[in-house]
Write a protein that binds this DNA or RNA. Structure first.
Lengths: 255, 255
DNA sequence: GAGTGTGAAATTCTTCACAGCC
DNA sequence: GGCTGTGAAGAATTTCACACTC
């Protein structure tokens, strides 16, 4: 039996990065590159590059390096970018609209083909090249457009139902911006992008980050934050996060 | 000598998630919770929860569990959410505008205090509660507003210079949406959010993801894009990979 | 009995270092 | 000489399992 060696998300994410770096070099007319040069130029690790690439066969030539174009082409295929992936955006609020526009620009691999929203005022309008359709038709719209990937930009409480509808419609990949951990259906991959989590990680970094300091913080001590003296309390803020929603999933690389 | 035990980003991200889960329980009136209950409810790993929390001192009570409110409060402090963090958004295009509005929602920990853009047509307008100022004044604006965290939503080629300007202005944390790896200045943390990378990871998962199949793909073979109706032709290649590809469900669930 | 906190094991990921090829 | 591909070492992270506490 062949082993079920899954390529890790970390590796895949790096392949995406490598591909972009290679495209840059291609534009500059560079034809060959060594792992060392790639690493120096884009702040990567040479041995990691070699290991990542070697995982998919001998891409390089010993003593020479990698052929920029052919390596790019191979990565392009590994990442399935030779197929067109159709996105359906669920929730055409600020974020959903922005993403539709952002992702709407001509790209041969990803295209937003549909958008749905529950706000009657938005239905029927055009945003970023797609017509906004009723949220209730989500599954039907997804099927009709043959969408591959769902993009969830709905509020947290609406996300689980939206996810189920996408699963129902046969999608197998979802990019989730809602701050909830979805109950992942086997075979339907969810990738979470949680702005809140990212910001909070950065916030911690603004103060001391060693375990001792954090332990003191937890206990209630005032560990210096840096410059935050001017705590002008910003007018009308919710005292407690009444809108706080459920959790989310696992980090990635981050990246 | 005190050890320089840095808390990992992975752990911090999970703390964010735990905090949100706890807020949800708080709203439901739950007062105590065990790591097992938390895990069951939000699809997490109980032992990981315990280890993450124990890192900051004894939060729980043996035989009983954790006090929801007091644990939430401690995490809130560890994550520095008791201070207000001021965000400056660089690039008020679609994504920047959306984020300004999105993050503009009343939150006591993060607030967008400024936005800059290089488009004269946008300067002077109000988006999501902030006045758009000239991109060229970036460093000055950041200083004046006492911004803590920079949000980069500029095109890739503008990002490195914008990052340097933020460093110059004294910021120590940057959330970067531009598809470039910034040359990270020591002490100024960069967190990348790369939609392209996320989408490409999902794209791979639409097909087989075992190393063998990817190797074939790289070599130019047509590996099936799993059971998506149309692609019937390629059914016989790599029968073993079809199942393996589905997985990668929960990192913590034992298979 | 129930459930945390934590050494120890297991697993995953990264880096080293060098054999082998150009 | 230069550089890849890779076994082996090393780090980091996760999971196990159980001593200990309430």
């Amino acid at each position: 039996m062949s082993e079920p060696v899954e390529t890790s998300a970390l590796t895949l994410n790096r392949l995406s990065v490598y591909l972009r770096c290679l495209r840059t070099l291609e534009c500059e007319g560079v034809q060959r590159v060594s792992s060392q040069e790639l690493a120096d130029r884009f702040h990567l690790s040479p041995s990691q590059i070699r290991r990542d690439l070697a995982q998919f066969g001998g891409f390089g030539v010993r003593g020479v390096g990698y052929d920029v174009s052919s390596l790019a082409e191979r990565l392009h295929r590994v990442l399935r970018l030779d197929a067109l992936h159709r996105l359906i955006v669920v929730g055409m609020g600020n974020l959903g609209s922005a993403l539709s526009t952002y992702l709407g620009f001509n790209d041969s691999s990803f295209q937003v083909v549909a958008g749905v929203d529950s706000d009657p005022g938005r239905i029927g309008t055009r945003i970023g090249g797609v017509l906004v359709e009723p949220y209730d038709d989500l599954a039907a719209v997804a099927r009709r457009c043959e969408a591959d990937i769902g993009v969830l930009t709905v509020p947290a409480d609406a996300a689980p139902a939206a996810y189920r509808a996408l699963v129902e419609a046969g999608l197998r990949a979802v990019l989730n911006f809602a701050p909830v951990l979805l109950d992942e259906v086997r075979g339907v991959r969810v990738k979470n992008v949680d702005l809140r989590v990212h910001l909070e990680e950065l916030a911690v970094h603004l103060g001391a980050t060693d375990a001792d300091s954090l332990r003191e913080l937890a206990a209630g001590a005032q560990v210096p934050a840096r410059d935050l003296e001017g705590r002008a309390d910003s007018a009308e803020i919710e005292p407690s996060s009444a809108l706080a929603a459920a959790g989310e999933a696992h980090p990635h690389r981050r990246g």
